[in-house]
Simulated scan of single mutants.
Amino acid sequence: MKTFSPRPPQHQGVLPESEPAAKIRDSGNHSTVTEFILAGLTEKPELQLPLLILFLGVYVVTVVGNLAMITLIGLSAHLHTPMYYFLSNLSFIDLCHSTVITPKMLVNFVTEKNIISYSACMTQLYFFLLFGIAECHMLAAMAYDRYAAICNPLLYNVVTSSHICFRLTVGVYILGIVGSTIHTLFMMRLLFCQRSVINHYFCDLFPLLEISCSSIFINELLVLVLSAFNILTPAFTILASYIFIIASILRIRSTEGRCKAFRTCSSHISAVAVFFGSAAFMYLQPSSVSSMDQGKVSSVFYTTIVPMLNPLIYSLQNKDVKFALKKIQGSRKCS
């Protein structure tokens, strides 16, 4: 887990006087910022247009793909099952997660200075954390659904009833709201002195902690505790679920039965590997300027690429989704 040591205020993102980086307001004996400068993905002007076109395309595919998945599940009666109920919520989370980050990033590609106000920065941080935490727990809920379907097929309709699925979903969003609220409130108590440049393309926890000129001990403690709960708990839940799932699959005698059981889990395993793998690269490495620059790449992956990939993963590897899509296309042709 990353750790930070507060640096003297005079070294924190100070730009030359001829190039002011953030507006300042007086607050008692301190000067605190009302605006931040986002360093962005790259400082090379020749890459701005290609990156704008690339991420605009990614965002369009993300919006269309996740909205299509939500609509398809809503319109197809045979997809009204716990598995697809959780999947529609995952698509909603992915859509919101990408929308919190990508539009601002696209605007920054065409503006001279990547300025974000203090209030907008805290708002972006809040919703980024909310949907990030929610995705972790939603993937765990989906693992529980696969565990119930394969390990307890006779009790599946009981342990994944509509009431239980609804409560699990509400719990996922509550955990996201609680975690993001705690992080954001304790971030707002910090002072960001002088001219503050965020070494990132959006307002994330670690880049903000790096430029704080007040004590961040409590924030570091919260990151440790809440990360352990919101990342490790879902990860261990998923791991435990798949240990029981694999054990159950190995007891199936027929090869066809084993392949069918593995297919029902393959999409979820792919989504889990992509999301947790890219997030771990960002949040579970030592803190340094170079690692933060490298972390931008993994951040791009789990904030923009993963939300685009999830609907593709579930549509390309899932026969039920393909069948529902063909059925809707066929009904349109007939009409």
Rank of each mutant, 00 (worst) to 15 (best):
L226S: 09
L139E: 06
V159N: 08
R253F: 14
T111I: 10
S162L: 03
C121Q: 04
S98Q: 12
A77N: 11
H80G: 01
I305M: 03
S241A: 09
A280L: 14
K2N: 06
L190H: 01
S76F: 00
Q124S: 00
R258M: 06
S254F: 01
P103Q: 11
L130F: 09
V225M: 06
F236R: 13
M83V: 10
V64S: 02
L309Q: 11
F109M: 15
A324C: 01
I37T: 12
C334S: 00
V63K: 09
A134T: 04
A140E: 13
I238H: 13
I133H: 01
S315Q: 12
S248W: 11
L106W: 08
H97Y: 10
L205K: 00
T62Y: 04
I116N: 03
I305N: 05
D145R: 08
L56K: 11
L250H: 07
I238N: 10
I243T: 12
I305D: 07
H268C: 13
A68F: 01
E210D: 10
L52Y: 12
V63Y: 04
R195P: 01
V321S: 03
L75Y: 01
A235M: 14
V300Y: 00
I231T: 15
L190F: 04
S98K: 03
N219V: 07
S227P: 01
D320V: 06
I305G: 06
T264V: 10
V63I: 12
V272H: 01
I150E: 02
S266Q: 09
V306Q: 03
E17G: 00
L226V: 12
S18N: 06
E35C: 06
L54Q: 06
S119C: 06
V158Q: 15
S291F: 08
C213T: 04
C265M: 05
P8F: 05
V197T: 08
A21Y: 08
Y144A: 08
A68V: 04
L191P: 07
C151Q: 05
G176T: 13
I216D: 04
H11E: 13
P307C: 04
I245Q: 04
V274C: 08
D204E: 15
F92Y: 10
T160K: 03
E17Q: 10
L95I: 14
I182T: 13
R189P: 15
N29K: 15
A143N: 11
I133C: 01
L87E: 03
S119D: 12
F4I: 11
V170S: 06
A68Y: 00
C193Y: 04
V272M: 08
S278A: 07
F128N: 12
T264M: 03
E112N: 07
A261G: 09
F86I: 09
V58K: 07
N89V: 11
Q48T: 02
A148L: 12
T255W: 10
P207Y: 01
T42P: 03
Q124C: 00
L232M: 11
Q124P: 03
R258L: 11
L49P: 14
N199E: 12
L90M: 13
N108M: 00
V64Q: 00
P207N: 07
A235Q: 14
R195Y: 02
R7S: 11
A134R: 03
C165E: 04
M138A: 06
D145S: 09
D204Q: 05
